[in-house]
Design a protein around this nucleic acid. Structure first.
Length: 734
DNA sequence: ACCGGCCAGATTTTT
DNA sequence: TCTGGCCGGT
């Protein structure tokens, strides 16, 4: 037996060796999904069932694609060349470049970023006289994206579906948007899938060609596919009667957390119907986490209806371990202190910071933890957040490069024509637009025309002339000077770098560094066009995961990662589950939130600490928070509860737990420390019951008398500020 | 053409 | 509380 097969357990082997016919692999968290996928890929090649170019392997992220490529190469013992392995978008971009003319594009089309899309939509909306206050371009963009996710072209949208926006004009605006994109030879992300699907549907010869080419199809994270991705896959996988449909989809319905982006969990639930005769293999042996962690996660997710059904078993020999801990705290600041303290304790025990993570529901939550970690001097990194290629200076520079590459890229030209300021305001740009539209020519052509005809004032005219001549010069220099040198020259001569050198804001220096980094990245590509394609599709730089740092990120960003220790703060109603998910999607929304909780817990290998705060500052004021219903859904057998502060939901938890004190980490120590040493001046007494009639002092409102008390909230008649409701920890007895 | 002040909004975001 | 987008003044 081949060596690579011997390393698999029986269920994994079944998933690898079932090569012919449709196969769905339901892979629970930590069950070796990636190993199965890559081994299967290699197995197909090793057994000579197909050449590398005859396998189509699709992922959602570039990271996953990269990892698969590397691991397949490792098994094969040589770099895997000529593969069709990549993200949905990258593969579609590749296909679309080959057949662009079938949808009215040229093969050198531009892939727009969201800024460009937004600008285009704003133009279209204002041209259509839509009240931008009532109907925002953001909403229109989301609407169009959702249609594209569903594989709908403008003509495919029924009037009934078009009622939400601008009195049923969204469809018309969508059509106009698509038309404008075609005029500027550009596509947005959604178009990559949409156009290719259209091509495959309407051009039998093209489809037949891909059918001949792809003998095996592998799909990762199938639970996250949206409708258009599903259609695309089905078109490629479906074969005439009698031929095997060799499609293998790997996924986990319990980890579907992207419905708000158009993902359809139904796709995975419906697999057997879509592909009759499909085999289903379940991977349930978890090699990542301890038994209590698996027990907690399984018990929680069992509250969801409509699952494929799957039970995680502990596959590790050392699976016994510490209970999952639920810690209830007074407020969000105390929560941050608790997490910070435990991180320090872990550090003292020799745990690596890179093996600890704080996973939050919403981005704003990271701030409290950042502040705390800074105070403690604990290095951390925030994963996600603003990406390199989303920064303004990078987008500007990219726009310059796009114009250099393709003069007809109107959106890019528009972005930089007055950046840095060249005295070209609204008026000049609008007349430039008008001319371009009238003659159906790109903006640059219109700009030249305006210079020739003197349709602009002297000052803007000269600035424009200088810019256009610059582009001609830089473009001419490309062949002999190379793209890196030309790019550097361009940024200097256009005045762009000078703009940031003049800028006195504290970020300016960093921006100049980023521009240097951009040039370095550009140097790794042989052509400018290749670089632009890469940036449009990848949108991330290779992160150097060098230093030993705590990771801070959203639960969404954490999918697919794992850590020894995971902190899951903020388990409070309204925050997690998030109110908006409940409002907008009801029970479905709740179930997705629960899956998110499941994803969070299953990131942990050994220690999982869940917390909630009774009070949290949201925007300006303190709000009292009800503990999350998910806390009640955790099984007592695997959970230790500590700290009753404000735990209204579960009275039992307020009583000392039978396990309290058994583990050093569970002790109430953190709270004792903070009470004595932290913010004593500002936050003196923990209420300890302030009686009605008590005279009190408040930092902001001054002196007053308590007239009513309701749990932790006090109604106080202040001598100067009047009657206010305050949280009791904010006052002291006077 | 540009700057400063005011008001609304504030989840998640693989490409 | 903080930020970003829009409007009105210079």
């Amino acid at each position: 037996m081949s060596e690579y097969l011997s390393r698999l357990n029986p269920e994994q082997r079944a998933a690898v060796e079932t090569v012919d016919g449709p196969l769905l692999v339901l892979a629970g968290a930590g069950t070796g999904k990636t190993r199965v996928l890559t081994t299967r890929f290699a197995h197909i090649l090793m057994t000579r069932r197909a050449f590398p170019s005859q396998v189509l392997a699709v992922t959602f992220t570039n990271k996953a694609a990269k990892e698969m490529r590397e691991r397949v190469a490792a098994i094969l013992g040589e770099p895997a060349e000529g593969l069709w392995l990549g993200t949905f978008h990258a593969l579609c971009a590749r296909m679309l470049r080959r057949h662009a003319e079938l949808v009215g594009l040229q093969s050198n089309f531009t892939i727009l970023d969201t800024d460009d899309q937004m600008r285009l939509l704003k133009q279209i909306m204002s041209a259509a006289n839509i009240d931008a206050k009532r109907w925002t371009p953001q909403v229109l963009m989301a609407t169009i994206q959702r249609w594209k996710d569903r594989g709908l072209v403008p003509s495919g949208i029924t009037a009934a579906e078009d009622v939400d926006f601008a009195n049923g004009r969204a469809r018309e605006l969508y059509a106009e948007y698509q038309e404008r994109l075609r005029q500027v030879n550009a596509v947005d992300f959604g178009d990559l899938l949409l156009h290719v699907t259209q091509i495959l549907q309407h051009h039998a010869d093209v489809l037949a060609d891909y059918h001949r080419r792809f003998r095996y199809i592998l799909v990762d994270e199938y639970q996250d596919t949206n409708t258009v991705q599903y259609l695309w896959l089905r078109l490629l996988a479906q074969r005439p009667q009698g031929q095997d449909q060799n499609i293998c989809c790997v996924g986990d319905d319990d980890q579907s957390i992207y419905s708000w982006r158009g993902a359809e969990i139904e796709n995975i639930l419906r697999f057997e119907k879509d592909f009759p005769g499909a085999t289903i293999v379940r991977l349930e042996s978890n090699y990542r986490s301890t038994r209590p962690i698996l027990g907690a996660a399984s018990h929680l997710i069992a509250n969801n209806a409509g699952r494929m059904g799957k039970t995680l078993r502990a596959g590790r020999n050392d699976a016994d371990g510490e209970q999952v801990q639920v810690v209830s705290l007074w407020d969000s600041e105390e929560e941050a202190r608790m997490v910070g303290d435990r991180i320090e304790q872990g550090q003292r025990k020799g745990h690596r910071l890179s093996e600890m993570a704080i996973l939050v529901r919403a981005g704003f939550q990271t701030r409290a933890f950042e502040e705390r970690l800074i105070t403690l001097g604990v290095p951390y990194r925030v994963v996600g957040g603003q990406k390199f290629y989303e920064r303004a200076e990078i987008r500007d520079a990219m726009a310059y490069l796009r114009v250099l590459n393709q003069p007809a890229d109107d959106l890019a030209f528009e972005r930089i024509v007055n950046t840095p300021k060249r005295g070209l305001g609204d008026t000049s740009i609008r007349s430039m637009h008008a001319l371009a539209r009238a003659e159906n020519k790109p903006l640059v052509v219109a700009a030249w025309r305006m210079i020739e005809t003197g349709a602009v004032r002297a000052k803007p005219k000269q600035a424009l002339h200088e810019l256009l001549e610059g582009f001609a010069r830089w473009r001419a220099a490309l062949p002999h000077e190379g793209h890196v040198v030309v790019a550097a020259t361009l940024l200097d001569e256009s005045g762009y770098t000078e703009m940031w050198k003049q800028d006195k804001s504290p970020e300016a220096a960093g921006r100049l560094d980023n521009l240097k980094e951009l040039l370095r990245a550009l140097g790794e590509f042989e052509t400018l066009a290749g670089f632009l394609e890469h940036v449009a599709l990848v949108m991330e730089t290779d992160e150097k995961a060098d230093a030993d740092r705590v990771s801070l990120m959203t639960l969404h960003a954490a999918k697919g990662l794992e850590f020894d220790t995971v902190f899951l703060p903020g388990w409070e109603e309204g925050l997690f589950p998030h109110q908006r998910a409940l409002d907008e999607s009801g029970d479905k929304g709740l179930e997705e939130e629960r899956r998110l909780a499941y994803v969070g817990i299953t990131r942990a290998r050994k220690h999982c600490i869940i917390s909630n705060a009774a009070n949290r500052r949201i925007y300006a004021n303190w709000t009292s928070q009800v503990p999350s219903r998910f806390l009640d859904e955790l099984p007592e057998a695997h959970v230790t509860r500590d700290g009753g502060a404000g735990n209204h939901r579960n009275k039992m938890a307020a009583a000392p737990s039978a396990f309290a004190g058994q583990f050093p980490l569970v002790a109430r120590k953190p709270r004792v420390i903070e009470a004595g040493a932290w913010e004593v001046a500002e936050r003196p007494a923990r209420s300890a019951g302030i009686p009605v009639g008590q005279r009190v002092f408040h930092q902001k409102f001054g002196y007053g008398t308590v007239i009513a008390a309701d749990d932790n909230r006090l109604d106080v008649e202040f001598e100067h500020a009047g009657r206010k409701r305050v949280i009791d920890t904010f006052v002291e007895k006077a």
